[in-house]
Amino acid sequence: MIVGLVGNVEGIEPTFITLNVSGVIYGVHVSLRASALLQEGQEARLYTTCIFKEDAHDLYGFLQPEERALFERLLKINGVGARVALSVLSLYGAPEFGALLKAHDLRGLQKVPGVGKKLAGKIMLDLEGYLAFGIAPNPHATEAALALESLGFKSDVVHKVCAGLPAGLNTQEIIKQALQQLR
């Protein structure tokens, strides 16, 4: 699994860049916001997610770990694929998306290409509390929450438990303490 890349940007398209990492050139899907901030010839650090399908192996890159965590969380929602998740991040950064969730702004979410009224409602319902509990700004808490959810714990319960833990813990400590409370 590739979780990050550091290299020189060789080419930029609106939602795709090529990144030269020590002579190996990677094609990476990025948000519109990320491609606007990058320049050819510039060294870039990307936090990545790999998605493997029968017909494709795609790499998605993000400038902040919070963006990657939000992308991965959006992918867990039935009906949200990589294109829609990337469109969300093209229109909203993690803090703006958190404000959108807190305000229950369905119309703002429907501005994302590919998100209609039904999917917007589903995203709101599934992510209720995700950013409201303050999980997203701390990448350790975000990673721990995603790990606990992958173990089968419900999202809302995980976020309530993680929100009650002391600040400054690393990912492993958060998982260990959360598991003690979730038993």
Rank of each mutant, 00 (worst) to 15 (best):
G81N: 06
Y92P: 01
K122L: 11
D126K: 14
A34Q: 02
V112R: 00
I77D: 05
G168L: 10
A132M: 06
S31V: 11
E96K: 03
E72Q: 12
L5Q: 04
L148N: 03
S87H: 03
Q181P: 14
V84H: 11
R68N: 04
N170E: 06
R107V: 08
V161L: 03
T142F: 14
A167K: 15
V80W: 07
H29N: 15
L131N: 10
A163P: 01
L101F: 07
A36G: 09
A167F: 13
Y47I: 05
V84E: 08
K160D: 13
V28W: 05
G164V: 03
E43V: 12
K111C: 11
Y92V: 05
A167R: 15
E10N: 11
N20M: 06
D58F: 15
G98E: 09
I135S: 09
A144F: 00
A85G: 04
E43H: 07
V30M: 05
H159L: 13
E72A: 02
L89F: 07
A132D: 15
K102W: 00
Q181S: 14
Q110Y: 03
F16N: 00
Q177M: 09
D105S: 07
E10A: 12
I12E: 08
I2M: 10
K154P: 03
V84D: 07
I17L: 14
A163Y: 01
A34K: 05
V3Q: 04
V24A: 08
N78L: 03
M124W: 09
A36H: 14
R73P: 05
G79S: 06
L101G: 12
D105W: 07
V157Y: 13
Q64D: 11
L119A: 11
R83E: 10
V112L: 05
F97E: 09
V9F: 13
E54Y: 04
L109V: 14
V84F: 09
V158N: 03
T18W: 15
V157P: 08
G4H: 10
Q110F: 02
A56G: 05
L5T: 04
P14S: 15
L91P: 10
Q42W: 07
F62N: 02
I77M: 05
F71Q: 10
H57W: 08
V6Q: 03
R83N: 14
A34R: 06
K122M: 10
I25S: 12
Q181N: 12
P95S: 13
L74K: 03
F62A: 12
G23K: 04
I175F: 12
L75K: 05
P95N: 09
L151I: 06
D58H: 15
V9Y: 06
V6T: 10
R33S: 10
P137W: 12
V9H: 06
